[in-house]
């Protein structure tokens, strides 16, 4: 970087420290743009891939009401993907890139998505658990990002977080019905919880143990995020462990406990090797879901061609 650029970056950082927000066509350091693109693409693609595990349960949702609500919820996820991918596209425009590049990267294995969306959803309780405990995790991350320095992202997040309030209650409502239901329904939820707990502990990423990873250090410095993975996970445990236990369910971690004085949770570390493998598309449903997306994307190309032809004709 030339000295001019360095001075400009320094000035940019000072403005961020002063609470200044950045807009899409403001000047920004390349590293700031790169961190935003990385983060927002990951978020967008996770929303888009996140429609697939839950949509499997739309037809099978037990009642007409649940079918409607789940459809609305998955629709919102697609909508969140849409809001976010537009923010990403504006940031990628100077490089001549758009959502097509994101999809190509996804299909080529260069674009990751969240670990939870690589997993199977074998029962209705799993679908409910995603709404309650996975969306519950997501809203903690998103709530933290709301105060970030890139204004277009925070505007999209504000809409998203508003809608997530419905998602969590929708998930809670499904899980509550199972908790208050028959022995079979309760067992179904307990099994889902046992199945999902390690993935939920993985959701926020590995603990920093005092040494923030490079991307985190950068996003913290750029005031894109304000909390570490571990801080978010601690908050999550404080919110959800008492609720899960109050319904009489057992969290499959005998070591899980909260220090009465510091309020800090200790917990069994999930297998972080496995986490790396999952997000590298080696999860149990990674290949199938990518295939689903790849096939539908390829077979819908002619429709996007129609849209492009229409635009030229106007």
């Amino acid at each position: 970087m030339n000295p001019d650029g360095e001075a400009r970056t320094q000035e940019f950082l000072e403005r961020l420290d002063g609470g200044h927000l950045v807009e899409a066509d403001d000047w920004m350091p390349d590293a700031y743009r790169a961190e935003l693109v990385r983060l927002i693409r990951l978020h967008a693609v996770s929303e888009i891939m996140g429609t697939l595990p839950e949509k499997e349960w739309v037809p099978r949702a037990p009642t007409l009401y649940r079918k409607l609500a789940l459809m609305a919820k998955v629709q919102d996820e697609a909508g969140h993907g849409q809001l976010l991918i537009r923010v990403a596209e504006d940031l990628m425009a100077p490089r001549g890139e758009n959502r097509e590049h994101i999809m190509e990267d996804l299909f080529a294995g260069r674009q990751k998505f969240h670990n939870v969306f690589h997993l199977p959803v074998p029962t209705w309780a799993d679908a409910g658990l995603i709404g309650w405990l996975v969306d519950g995790a997501a809203i903690i991350t998103q709530g933290m990002l709301l105060g970030g320095s890139y204004a277009p992202y925070t505007r999209a997040l504000r809409r998203i977080v508003e809608e997530e309030a419905f998602h969590i209650q929708h998930g809670e409502s499904i899980c509550m019905a199972l908790a208050e239901g028959t022995a079979g329904q309760r067992a179904m939820f307990q099994e889902a919880l046992t199945r999902w707990w390690p993935a939920l502990m993985m959701f926020f990423g590995p603990p920093e143990d005092g040494a923030a990873l490079s991307h985190q250090a950068a996003t913290l410095r750029f005031r894109i995020r304000s909390k570490t993975n571990e801080e978010l996970r601690q908050r999550y445990l404080s919110k959800y462990v008492p609720r899960i236990r109050s319904l009489g369910f057992i969290i499959p971690d005998p070591t899980l406990q909260q220090d009465p004085d510091t309020k800090a949770w200790t917990y069994q570390q999930p297998d972080w090797q496995q986490w790396r493998a999952i997000i590298a598309n080696h999860g149990p449903r990674s290949a199938a879901r990518l295939n689903l997306r790849r096939t539908s994307y390829a077979e819908g190309q002619w429709v996007r061609d129609v849209m492009a032809a229409t635009r030229k004709a106007v």
Binding site: Y65, L68, A69, A165, P242, R243, L247
Partner: peptide, 29 residues
């Protein structure tokens, strides 16, 4: 389309309160 409005799920607030209180009372557990 009330199924997508939080107002449809307000009953959960009371339920959580009830479960929270039960959890606070050891003998009910």
């Amino acid at each position: 389309k009330t199924y997508r409005e939080v107002s449809d799920y307000q009953y959960l607030v009371g339920k959580w309160r009830q479960y929270h209180q039960q959890a606070m009372t050891p003998d009910t557990m």
